[in-house]
Design a protein around this nucleic acid. Structure first.
Lengths: 204, 204
DNA sequence: CGCATAGTTGACTACGCTCAACCCTGGTGG
DNA sequence: CCACCAGGGTTGAGCGTAGTCAACTATGCG
């Protein structure tokens, strides 16, 4: 069973699926909203943002197609973060109660759910790993290397504003810009606009 | 079914469970090891450490009793991090193949697995949230507030060396020490040794 | 053509890191 | 019982890096 292909799902769950289309900037849910459903992105991407303290914003994750968000619905009754579409985005929503019920009745669904969550854990772990690299250039380089590995090519095309990439990595846009310059002048990368090529192929 | 109570598990899985006792400092598995099993901590705690680049260590998570580690085994064939016992620790290991099989046959197990993973996602998210707070005092304060909420008391007893707490939060021990001092002199907390009391009850 | 926004660069600040000395506690052995 | 040592913890001085504020350029869109 594949959560993204409703035809493969049991009737009971399929009927409850909600499909939502979001414009860039639109919110799927807000921190504190009653959490009733888990979502999976089919197209586009969403940014998960947490507000902590008085004025600190934390981007927890960028959710890409095939990944889940709002799993907290399974555990607690309020979303702990806000989900904002970064581009035009399409998501499918699975009501908590129906999903848990379907899980009990259809084991093969359980397996896909487990894999979905595991993938999310890997994503989060990766972000934490980056954050533990203190020096900006180094952190950025690791990020690029990861993208390169994912694409299995060492030419990367950044498909979104550097601004956003910056906050993902925990930088200000200025710092990102400077880091890019220095990486280039140190010969670690060459860039033209948003196309980046890694020079040394040494991966972690 | 409860993964931590073998009696409640199906025979097939129960037979395959491996139980391990670790001394403080001992490694359960190392980054790159063949990943064959998912573990759950029953007692003690483990630190998940990732080595990135040449000389950067990232503590991804402290795994507490009832939490899982090594879920990556379900997705990839090598552990992406090293697991080190921080104290005497007892874990149960569930071989990947048996676990997936049992998942398919015993839906109620699937539910507990899903919840387990969801909890882990929450933990990781929390850590990321902290890391996005740039100022040390503020970050530390949020950390304390979280502990206070968990204990639903605003007196906290830190049960491990400040050293370790420091690296969890992404600080050096010196910075943590200084932040503590300043929080105290600013009146946000009072402390005697490792006992911390929060002053203002304003939570996020 | 002009406006809005992304991106770049500069000057300055300030925070956390590094290195070092020091205190304090707990454990060990003479 | 005390001397000694090891390790955690604290404090200080100086440095370096990223953040901030600001000006300026480039790009894309109405």
């Amino acid at each position: 069973m594949d959560l993204l292909v409703p035809e493969t799902l049991p009737q009971s769950l399929r009927r409850g699926i909600v499909s939502r289309n979001l414009m860039a900037g639109q919110r799927l849910f807000r921190q504190g909203d009653r959490a009733a459903a888990l979502f999976v992105v089919t197209d586009g991407r969403l940014r998960l943002v947490r507000c902590v303290g008085e004025s600190n914003l934390a981007t927890v994750q960028i959710v890409q197609p095939g990944e889940s968000l709002g799993e907290a619905a399974l555990l607690v009754d309020a979303y702990p973060e806000t989900a904002i579409a970064e581009t035009a985005t399409w998501v499918l929503g699975y009501p908590k109660s129906l999903l848990l019920a379907a899980l009990n009745e259809h084991p093969s669904l359980a397996e896909t759910a487990v894999l979905l969550l595991t993938r999310k854990i890997q994503e989060l772990t990766l972000r934490l790993e980056w954050r533990d690299i203190p020096m900006a250039r180094e952190r950025l380089l690791q990020y690029f290397r990861h993208l390169a590995r994912s694409a299995s090519r060492n030419e990367i095309l950044l498909d979104r504003p550097l601004k956003e990439i910056a906050v993902d990595l925990g930088f200000t846009p200025e710092t990102l810009s400077r880091s890019l310059s220095r990486l280039e002048q140190e010969g670690a990368i060459t860039r033209s606009g948003r196309s980046i090529r890694l020079q040394d192929a040494s991966a972690a």
